[in-house]
Amino acid sequence: MQIQKIVVPVVALVIAVAGYRAYGWAGLALVAGGLVMWQLLHFTRMLQILKKAANRPIGHVDSAVMLHAKLAAGQPLLHMVALTRSLGLLESPKDTQPERFRWTDTSQSSVLCVFLGGKLQSWELTRPATEAPAAQTDDAALAP
């Protein structure tokens, strides 16, 4: 994540310089407009994801097993919120790294995700203990 903080501004600066050298101030204005549009698209996507998550309970997911199957290391927290359509229930102390969020479904299965620097590092599926099914007796078999 640290390299993105350096590479993205450097690439934007290189494109701005190339636009200025090729077309002067008009090229620089075009590049600046493109960069602003790119930022607005990301901002709009983030707002739409958070708007959908605001209408759901914190830490709830439709199916923890299906969420567990869709996870991959390195996914950003915003992508997780988009997958679950819910904010995760914070289980670690606030503002500490790594962050731990839990999503639980109606059957009490849950996925605990560990994020370091906003990227998914590890996850664990926890399912509730199931009781052994009671032995079914057939009334016809018991009759003499």
Rank of each mutant, 00 (worst) to 15 (best):
E131D: 11
E131L: 14
H79E: 13
I15M: 13
T96G: 00
D95T: 09
T44V: 14
R45L: 07
A29Q: 08
C113Y: 02
M37F: 13
G33T: 15
Y20H: 06
L116E: 12
L13Q: 06
G88P: 02
L142P: 01
Q39H: 04
F43G: 09
Q136D: 06
T104V: 12
M66E: 14
H60Q: 11
A134Q: 08
R100D: 05
L67E: 02
T106Y: 11
P9G: 09
A69E: 15
M66I: 14
P9H: 14
S110Q: 09
E124T: 13
V7G: 06
V8A: 14
A22Q: 13
M46D: 14
Q75L: 14
K94R: 14
L90Y: 02
R100N: 04
S86I: 12
A73P: 00
P76R: 05
A132W: 05
I49H: 07
P133S: 08
T130H: 08
A53R: 03
T106I: 15
V114N: 02
F115H: 04
A53T: 12
Q108W: 00
A53G: 10
S63M: 08
L142F: 04
L142Q: 05
C113Q: 01
D105K: 03
N55W: 00
A26L: 03
T96W: 02
C113N: 01
T96M: 13
L90R: 12
A129N: 04
P9I: 11
V11R: 07
L87F: 08
Q75G: 00
R102V: 15
D138I: 09
R56M: 08
T106N: 13
P144I: 00
D105C: 00
S110W: 02
V111A: 10
F101N: 08
Q39G: 06
P57E: 14
T96A: 05
D139Y: 05
G33F: 11
V65G: 05
G34K: 09
S109A: 15
V65M: 09
M37P: 01
M46A: 15
D62R: 10
V111D: 03
A64H: 06
L90S: 03
D62S: 10
M46S: 08
V65N: 11
L41V: 15
G59H: 03
S122C: 07
D138E: 07
G27E: 00
A64G: 07
G24N: 01
L83F: 10
A132E: 12
L112R: 05
L41D: 06
R21W: 10
G19D: 01
A135I: 13
Q97V: 15
A26C: 00
V11I: 14
T137G: 07
L120W: 05
N55S: 09
K94S: 10
P93M: 08
P76C: 01
E91M: 14
G117Q: 05
A26I: 06
M37I: 10
R102I: 15
Y20A: 12
V36R: 11
L67S: 07
V14C: 10
P98M: 05
P98C: 06
G117E: 10
W103M: 00
K94A: 12
K119L: 07
S109C: 05
W103S: 02
S110R: 08
